[in-house]
Amino acid sequence: MCRWLAYLGEPLRPSTIVLDANNSIVAQSLDSSLGAETVNGDGFGFGWYPTDAPAGTEPALFHSTEPAWNDQNLRELTRAILSPLFFTHVRAAAAPPIQQTNCHPFRYENWMFMHNGAIGGWHKVKRDLTLAIDPSLYPNVLGTTDSEVLFHLALTLGLADDPVAAVGRAIRTVESVGHEHDVQFPWQGTIAVSDGQRVWAFRYSSQGRTRSLFHSADVPTLREMYPDAERLRLFGDEAHLVVSEPLSEMPGVWVEVPESTAAILEPGGYRHEPFLAD
């Protein structure tokens, strides 16, 4: 469906990952080896939090309907700025139209959200799920994607207080409404969400066959494994990535996030929690 990447760590020029990695997100937009579609050319988005921004700062967003491989502005931005936390998403549109308001990541106040996957039977469940959004949040739904509706459902159900529980409640709502409309497998996807300080990444599907998701191992450990790897010197000790598919083929660099798991990245490292596991 799509490919995405999230970075948390010491301030970094995003181009280091977005453009320069062997299997960068831009390379994946042209030729994805693990994606449901090989080409993800239906627009892209880049969202970032400024360096040294206080807690609660709103992220900046750049969206384009051009393919990521064809957009010079993405190259200019990612080479010019420094950020300790950023998201990048390349889109393969399933049904909603190609327009800027349908490009991820989505934003509400200090929260940022992106998704790879789909709500099953969207045309059947769209009305019920949209009406479940808090009326005060509804005016902020600017596009037509199922992903943006899910984000606002999670906001409605307490994202600011407990992201893992809120995303879980939002997906359970999707499954409940889907089953009411005879949708066998209502939910499929990986999700990234951030408050500007941490990143929560989720892997879950109703069928138990979710799209791929990985995060990087600790940089100090990787330097011990690969003492001659010049590229690792570009990253600080706190640097972590979450990706739809690995950016390199170096053994030991990438840890697969298990099915029905939430991976929490925060200063000091990462941890896994069971997510909607039966």
Rank of each mutant, 00 (worst) to 15 (best):
R3W: 02
W4D: 11
L5W: 08
E10A: 12
P11D: 00
L12M: 10
L12F: 05
S15W: 10
N23A: 14
Q28G: 07
S29M: 09
S33M: 12
L34P: 05
A36Q: 13
A36R: 13
N40R: 11
F44T: 04
F44E: 09
P50Y: 05
A53M: 03
A55R: 10
P59F: 01
A68Y: 04
Q72I: 01
L74F: 08
T78K: 02
A80P: 00
A80K: 13
F87C: 08
H89L: 09
R91T: 03
A94I: 12
A94G: 14
I98C: 06
I98K: 12
R107D: 09
R107S: 14
E109R: 15
W111A: 10
M112C: 01
M112L: 06
M112I: 04
N116E: 09
I119V: 13
K124F: 11
S136I: 12
D146S: 10
V149Y: 06
L150K: 03
L155N: 09
L155W: 01
P163A: 01
A165W: 08
A165M: 00
Q184I: 11
Q184L: 15
Q188V: 01
V199P: 13
W200P: 05
G208M: 04
T210A: 15
R211N: 15
L213M: 10
P220W: 06
E224V: 15
Y226T: 10
E230C: 13
D237Y: 07
A239F: 06
V242C: 15
V243L: 08
P246G: 05
V257E: 07
E259I: 07
S260E: 15
A262S: 14
E273G: 02
P274I: 12
F275T: 12
L276D: 01
A277S: 15
